[in-house]
Amino acid sequence: MEIPYTVDTRADTGLNNVKLGIWLFLASEVMLFGGLFSSYVLLRVGAEAGTWPQGAEILSIPLATFNTIVLIGSSVTMVMAWASLKLRDLFKYRLYMGTTVALALVFLIVKAFEYADKFSHHLYPSESTFLGIYFLITGLHGLHIVGGIIVNSYFLLPGVKMWHTAPERFTNRVEAAGLYWHFVDLVWIFLFPVLYLL
């Protein structure tokens, strides 16, 4: 059975189902990360005076700044990949989407170095409340990066064949993947100052 309204807009919403569906998913994601941000605030304001470390005392600001630049860069290449499809330029799409996946991998590699450095100094999630919430939130964010890499790699390699049979539908798929990817970037934009700088 054909999935309805993957390209055509519904008369009642004025949107195709792809767009509405991904935004509803992102709304649930806001609540997921919102719960953790709320927990962070609760734990921080409830901590005894002088017991909550400044992120910079434990974490590496240069590495996190580099990763922020990498992730913002990947957001730009993602939106450029979608724009390339709109311009009917498959070569540039492959170039930008490939760069997006590569930048996501760079982010994960840097994060792995950060984690390894913490573990080598015996700084585990069980060490303190700060480290517990740091590993929880950044770990969950990292899992979202992994999910994005899997989806974007699919659209870069096997999934791209849809372009030749249903280009508009494929473009909408890439737009939905892009909305998810920009959300992951947006979460990091808030995580960076909250965990590392304050």
Binding site: M78, H182, F183, D185, F190
Partner: peptide, 10 residues
């Protein structure tokens, strides 16, 4: 920064 990402990229 978040508003810029949401407004233009999204």
């Amino acid at each position: 920064k978040g508003s810029l990402v949401a407004s233009y990229f999204m």
